[in-house]
Amino acid sequence: MASEQTVHMNGGQGDTSYARNSSLQNADQNRMRPLIEEAIADLLSASASMPRSMVVADLGCSSGPNALALVSIAVDAIRGQCFRSRQPPLEVCVFLNDLPDNDFNMVMKSLVAFQQGHRSVVTGVIPGSFYGRLFTTGSLHLACSANSLHWLSELLKN
């Protein structure tokens, strides 16, 4: 797909970077909090027994301050659900996905800080289009995508 190389956010920390110009996207992600919390509650309550681990992915994570927003909400929801059900904390694996032109240097730096604050979380980065295969069958418990689909739909309109 030719758009994979043309539709991406401005990297780095400059005045025109996504990291400095993404407050609207952050607001959208915050509005998704109750949906993610409900999905986690449904996933964990539907299990006959509490799983030992969960895998969460953000498809189109971008970079900058929003890169970890959705997965942070998911990790907090998983921990909260375990606490409310008096279960031990689950191990959580978090994958961040975006197109190869994403500023993954910034994403990796964010992941280091994230892991320090969430010791039971394992993280990884999966570059590529989510229109192709990124994960093995049955390997994800929750996949989130905030604005990626919007940008792709806008591209298709033009």
Rank of each mutant, 00 (worst) to 15 (best):
residue 113 A to F: 08
residue 152 L to V: 14
residue 22 S to N: 07
residue 69 A to M: 10
residue 37 E to H: 05
residue 141 H to Y: 10
residue 19 A to P: 03
residue 62 S to P: 00
residue 103 D to K: 06
residue 158 N to R: 11
residue 62 S to K: 02
residue 83 F to I: 13
residue 62 S to F: 00
residue 155 L to Y: 15
residue 65 P to N: 06
residue 140 L to M: 13
residue 68 L to Q: 03
residue 51 P to I: 08
residue 26 N to Y: 11
residue 116 Q to T: 13
residue 84 R to S: 12
residue 21 N to R: 04
residue 36 I to H: 05
residue 63 S to R: 02
residue 94 V to E: 10
residue 114 F to P: 02
residue 47 S to R: 14
residue 119 R to L: 12
residue 7 V to R: 07
residue 2 A to F: 05
residue 78 I to F: 01
residue 90 L to K: 04
residue 39 A to V: 06
residue 4 E to C: 08
residue 75 V to Y: 00
residue 5 Q to W: 09
residue 123 T to P: 04
residue 117 G to F: 03
residue 142 L to R: 08
residue 25 Q to I: 06
residue 28 D to A: 15
residue 36 I to R: 05
residue 91 E to P: 07
residue 17 S to G: 02
residue 106 M to K: 10
residue 52 R to M: 13
residue 5 Q to T: 15
residue 111 L to K: 05
residue 98 D to C: 10
residue 114 F to H: 05
residue 8 H to M: 05
residue 1 M to W: 08
residue 144 C to A: 12
residue 120 S to D: 15
residue 9 M to T: 00
residue 100 P to W: 09
residue 120 S to M: 14
residue 64 G to A: 01
residue 33 R to S: 05
residue 116 Q to K: 15
residue 72 S to R: 06
residue 12 G to C: 03
residue 85 S to F: 05
residue 45 S to W: 01
residue 150 H to W: 15
residue 33 R to I: 07
residue 11 G to W: 00
residue 152 L to M: 14
residue 12 G to R: 00
residue 130 F to V: 09
residue 77 A to D: 08
residue 64 G to Q: 01
residue 33 R to G: 01
residue 126 I to G: 10
residue 157 K to D: 15
residue 108 M to N: 14
residue 2 A to P: 07
residue 54 M to Y: 03
residue 85 S to H: 09
residue 26 N to C: 11
residue 8 H to P: 04
residue 153 S to C: 15
residue 74 A to T: 00
residue 24 L to Q: 11
residue 148 S to V: 10
residue 37 E to K: 06
residue 19 A to F: 03
